[in-house]
Design a protein around this nucleic acid. Structure first.
Lengths: 219, 219
DNA sequence: CAATGATGTAATCGACGTTTACATTCACGT
DNA sequence: ACGTGAATGTAAACGTCGATTACATCATTG
C-alpha cells in the first residue's frame, strides 16, 4: 500500500498515522524538553533519558545530536541566553536615552525580573556547573556585552557628574554582585527565611537596586 | 555530643592486624571524606559510594549511619556551618566594640574571606539544592543569627547617625545580596571573565564591600 | 554465656550516561 | 528510477550511582 504523499516534515502529522522512523526535528524538541525539565525541577533534574522519553524516542537517540549530556545542556543554555538577551534588549529600548543612571537602573531591573521569572534557566546560564561556558561563544559574548554595557553606563553617568567619587571597576563588580546575589538568593531558596514572600520578590528587588544606586549618586 | 569517643576498641590497631569488622567511627570518617570530596570537585561530586570507598568500607555501610545521600550532605553542611560560624565569631571578637559600622564591615569581610577559601563548603551551606535546610535546625539557627547580627549592627549605626536615611530592612537584604553574590560569582567561576585574578579576589572583595558601605553612610 | 541490637557485607534493583552494533530512511549522483 | 552512502533512529549492553534486602559479625549486657 503505497503511502503516496508522506508528510515528511510538514506540520502535524495526522493522529492516526504510525510514528515515522525519523523524527524530523529531534534536536530542537530535545532542547525544548530539557528547558521544560529544568523549569520543572531545576537544572540537575535534566536527564537525557527523560528528554528522550518526552520526545518519544529511544534513550540512545539524543546522542545522535548531542555528544553528551553536557552538550545538550550547552544548547539549552544557549537558548536560555537568547531569551534573556532579548528581554534585556527590549527593556533597554524603552529606557531614557539621555539618562545613563536611569538606563543602568533599568538594566538591573530587567536582569532581576528575568531571573525571578526564569530561575532555573538563569541558573543554567550563570554557573559553570551546568555546562562548559568556555565552549559556548554565544553565552560568553553576551555576557561580555552585558558587562561592557553596565560599565559604559556607569562611565557615562560619572562623566555627567551624576556619581560620587568612586572606582568604576569596583562599582561595576559590586553592581553585578548585588543583582547576581539577589537572583541566587531567590534560586537557592533564601527568601522565605528572610521574610520576603514570593509575591514581594520583584518589589524587593527594585527596592534593593534603588538603595544601591542611591549609594552611588553624588549626595 | 562531645567528640571524645575515641578508642571504642582498646587502641589503634597495629598496622599488621587484619581489618576489624567494625570500623569504630565510621560516621565521622564518612563526613570527613565527604567534606574532602566536596572540596576536591564541588558539592555534586560527593557520592556515598566514593565516601565509603575512602573509608575502606562497603557501599552499603554508610546507610547504617545516614538514611540517604541527602542526610549525609546534611551532616556535611552542619560541620561546614560550624566552621563558618567559628570563623565569623573569631572575626567579630577583634572588631571595635563601639563602632557598629566597622563591625558590620568586619562581618562582611569575614563572610567573604571564608567563602573565598572554602567555596564548595560555602556552596553546600548556601543552597537548598544540596541538602534539606528545613531539616537542619543548626544551619537555620546560625543563619538567622547572622541575619539578626547584620540587622542589629545596621540599626545601631543608624541610631548613632552614621547612616544616610534608608530603609534598614532593604539595606540588610542588599548587603546580603552583595556578599552572597560576590561569593557565588567566585564559586560559579565568573571572575576570570571579569578580569579578576584568583590572587586578587580577596582584595577585590574588600573594595566592593567598602564601596557598598560607603554608599550607606551619611555624606 | 546467651540473647539482642548495632554495625558491617553481598547481592540486587532501577535510573542514569554512554557506547556499540544494527535497522531504517533520506538525499543525491548516475 | 535506482542504488548507495550518510543521516538518524533502535536494541542491547556496560559501568556508576543511590538505595534496599538478607545475612554475617561483633559488643553489650542481663
Amino acid at each position: 500500500m503505497p503511502r503516496s504523499a508522506r508528510p515528511k516534515r510538514s506540520a502535524a502529522r495526522p493522529a492516526s498515522a504510525p510514528k515515522p522512523y525519523h523524527h524530523g526535528d529531534l534536536k530542537r524538541v530535545l532542547v525544548d524538553a530539557a528547558l521544560v525539565l529544568a523549569a520543572e525541577g531545576g537544572p540537575e533534574e535534566v536527564s537525557v533519558r527523560e528528554a528522550a522519553r518526552r520526545a518519544g524516542v529511544s534513550p540512545a537517540a539524543p546522542f545522535r545530536h548531542f555528544e553528551s549530556r553536557e552538550a545538550l545542556m550547552s544548547a539549552v543554555a544557549e537558548e536560555a541566553q537568547r531569551r534573556f538577551r532579548a528581554e534585556i534588549a527590549r527593556a533597554m529600548e524603552d529606557a531614557p536615552a539621555d539618562d545613563p543612571l536611569a538606563r543602568f537602573r533599568k538594566l538591573g531591573l530587567a536582569y532581576l525580573r528575568w531571573a525571578m521569572r526564569n530561575p532555573a534557566h538563569f541558573a543554567i546560564i550563570s554557573s559553570r556547573a551546568h555546562f562548559d561556558h568556555d565552549a559556548s561563544v554565544e553565552v560568553s559574548r553576551d555576557n561580555a556585552e552585558l558587562i561592557a554595557l553596565a560599565g559604559d553606563l556607569l562611565a557615562e553617568a560619572a562623566a555627567k557628574g551624576q556619581l560620587r567619587p568612586l572606582d568604576l571597576v569596583t562599582a561595576r563588580i559590586a553592581a553585578r554582585a548585588l543583582v547576581y546575589g539577589f537572583a541566587r538568593m531567590h534560586i537557592d531558596g533564601h527568601f522565605p527565611r528572610w521574610g520576603v514572600a514570593e509575591a514581594d520578590v520583584e518589589r524587593t528587588a527594585e527596592a534593593v537596586l534603588d538603595l544601591f544606586v542611591g549609594g552611588l549618586v553624588r549626595a
